[in-house]
């Protein structure tokens, strides 16, 4: 564990807390893509199949359980909570996310570290996480306006990815055999998807104005 990895995990956790806060405090999920949230739930369940087979640390197990539980809770709220579900921007959230699931799984069957069920699901979760933000970014682009908490949610999610890249650079320089091509290449792709959002986020922050994305 290095400082970048910890910062990455903490900003990831923070992003989820911000999202839960938004849903809980405003009883609204407007501006949030349910498809992206469903993809994250699939990502965590597929990746943490090792929860019962490999013990790494209490921290590791705790975080895995938190990520699985929170992502399922968010999806549950958006689908079934009587008030929250009414605010869902159904007509804006039309990205064909099943294509992302299919393409990620096909890629995992081709590119993986070992041909075992657990390793294929692990690779699948890495590929799917890389593109899972796309429905969310498309929804924001369509609605144009981004409320503060939604903007902060995506900002922290992007920060988490940026810290993970610094973590890999640090590990590459300090650990003799650190080569994780699948995770690192997918991670760079994932972070690049946030570049556009970050650009507009910083402009609005600099001008102290409301975050708006161009149509």
């Amino acid at each position: 564990m290095n400082i970048f990895r910890l910062a990455g995990d903490m900003t990831h956790l923070l992003s989820i807390l911000v999202l839960l806060l938004k849903i809980y405090a405003t009883k609204s999920c407007s501006g949030i893509s349910r498809k992206t949230q469903e993809l994250y739930a699939i990502v965590f369940v597929a990746r943490y199949l090792d929860l019962f087979t490999d013990f790494i640390s209490v921290y590791n197990t705790f975080m895995k359980v938190v990520f699985i539980a929170s992502s399922l809770a968010i999806v549950w709220c958006m689908r079934f909570h009587p008030m929250v579900r009414r605010s869902y921007d159904r007509e804006l959230d039309t990205f064909r996310h099943y294509f992302l699931v299919g393409a990620s799984f096909a890629l995992a069957l081709i590119l993986h570290e070992k041909f075992t069920v657990q390793e294929i699901f692990w690779a699948f979760s890495i590929y799917l996480e890389a593109v899972a933000i796309l429905p969310q970014l498309v929804l924001l682009q369509r609605s144009g306006n981004v409320d503060n908490l939604t903007g902060q949610y995506i900002f922290f999610l992007g920060a988490y990815r940026a810290f993970y890249i610094l973590n890999w650079i640090y590990r590459y320089l300090t650990e003799p055999h650190f080569t994780r091509w699948i995770a690192c290449v997918s991670g760079v792709v994932q972070t690049a998807l946030y570049a556009d959002f970050f650009y507009y986020y910083f402009i609005s922050w600099k001008n102290n104005s409301k975050l708006k994305l161009p149509a």
Binding site: D54, S57, N60, F67, Y164, H177, T179
Partner: peptide
Amino acid sequence: GDVDDAKDEL
């Protein structure tokens, strides 16, 4: 490269 190391990252 060693791919056998446990997946310690989240």
